[in-house]
Design a protein around this nucleic acid. Sequence first.
RNA 1: GCCCCCGUAGUUCAAUGGAUAGAACAGUUCCGUCCUAAGGAAUAGAUGUAGGUUCGAUUCCUACCGAGGGCACCA
Length: 569
Amino acid sequence: MKEQILECLKKAVTKLGIDASDANLSFPDNVDHGDYTTNIALISAGKSKTNPRKLAEEIVKEIEIKTPDFLESVTIAGPGFINFKIKEGILAKEVVKLSEAGDDLGKSQTEAGKKILIEYTDPNTFKAFHIGHLMANAIGESLSRLIECSGASVTRLCYAADIGLHIAKAIWAWQRHLNETPADDADIIPRTAFLGKMYVEGTKAYDDDPIAKKDIDALNKVIYDKSDDKVMALYEKGRKWSLDHFELLYKLLDTKFDAYLYESEMATVGLKIVKENMSKVFKESDGAIVFHGEDYGLHTRVFINSVGLPTYEAKDMGLNATKFSKYPDIDQSIIVTASEQNEYFKVILKALSLFDKEAAAKTMHIGHGMMRFASGKMSSRTGNVITAESLLADVREMVAEKIASRGFGEGEATEISDIIAVGAIKYSVLRSAIGSDIIFDSAKSISFEGDSGPYLQYSAVRAASILEKAKQEGVSQTVNSLPEKVSLVEKLLIRFPEIISRAKAEYAPQGVANYLMSLAGAFNSFYASQVIVDKNDKLSPYYVALTKAFRQTMVNGLWVLGIKVPEKM
RNA sequence: GCCCCCGUAGUUCAAUGGAUAGAACAGUUCCGUCCUAAGGAAUAGAUGUAGGUUCGAUUCCUACCGAGGGCACCA
């Protein structure tokens, strides 16, 4: 319908000598204004210095020569907006169609055939998987799903830091606490917690004690060179513990990576690339190999340090090359990290563009905000972090208390608690613009009411329970009568595909989150205002279809956010 | 010092340059024979300051104030 209105609008303005490329249709903020609106008269009146309302009148006159028959009215409002109202009966018919759509609702094929690589989460072995990683994962997963909705195929990559100074710090401390090493068959959480503690201790020693610093730097080289079996045994053990733990979390968070890349594998290839491009891109400076970003309005960064080890920068060069050699036919490579790396990635992409223009053009960095405490930044260096594990445990416990009186079996209760806890956490991340920081105080700041994940899940669950009742009461599946008037629910439902495609175009999952909130709110008002399942009401089959369309839209929309809907809650 | 981001109700967040700046939480009131009250209805409350561009600015530009991030051998 949108296409038909737009075409009709374009025809009308072209006749009046207005550039049709300015023609646009959007959703008015207030649904009373109509289903679609255009500000074309305002735009072109500005250009040609004419009266916008008068111009709008002329446009409407042109449109009215042959108005599409599904339109109720075309009116002018405010300073010169042209509002299109679709006949309510048509909207109702449209919703009945939506109720039969299923899992494809909201999906398109506009990007079919495209291959997209997306890297996110990027945890560090030997360090805690904290709520910042959880945030990164929620955002990356949602972006992946938005892209999948456009028909493109998505390859999810996880790049784990498993080499570098942070690990030398942890192992240095570990060597001093060998007798405290947890057993391999101990629970995974205390094992990785031990590693995190070692990291904090090693970092402190590195900063405070010059001798320890020297030892740790030397140990770092030993790890890169794999020159000491005892050290490597600790390294392998700790690395495996961390990776095993991450895997458990991915499962809980409903992320499935297609491939894992490790920093340790990028060192050699990264060194090689930097050395190959020494003259034109990288330069020697104080014994290190650097890229002079200043020449491009950026800042200088070290790619190979003065003892010949690749820094994160060089390894990123290797990572990038590996991505394009492993997946030669990709159209786009997206990297999602915290926004503290925004400037860093500008430098990296500039350097890359100087020797591989095509790869640089296909690569995009998306910076997401950071989880912060009201008192300041989280820091895994000092151990001032909340681990994903502890947040999940706290939130799960809050959910468990809420559902305790509902008589679920133990297994069922655990499953429901997981789904709701993860939903509550992910929603609290995804409801905001991804670039902005989130102030996080404690699990108490995760909401279960109002603008929250559980509110959305609850609305969908309640809709499911209505559908169940309709089945039991034998309300007819075929819709024979349609209402003359529709509610806000119908008007919002038909927007869903456009909401998804816009969120995808802008890499903005919060557009979906905000939409689902409005939709759920509209449905809950509708739910409260009338009985949906009623055998004596001839409109009941229609209301049931509406509920079905609502339920499916919620399920699909929440899927985009990486949030599951439980059977009951 | 230089560069980048951000300042919206008491709080946490929305708002492709457009119409009366939306929600939620907290506050004050209501709604329990009804499909799950994690719900619904009502009420009060906000664009840091000063300019500029524009028919129109929360949105763009400038300055100031305030808060964050980044700036050489960490990741």
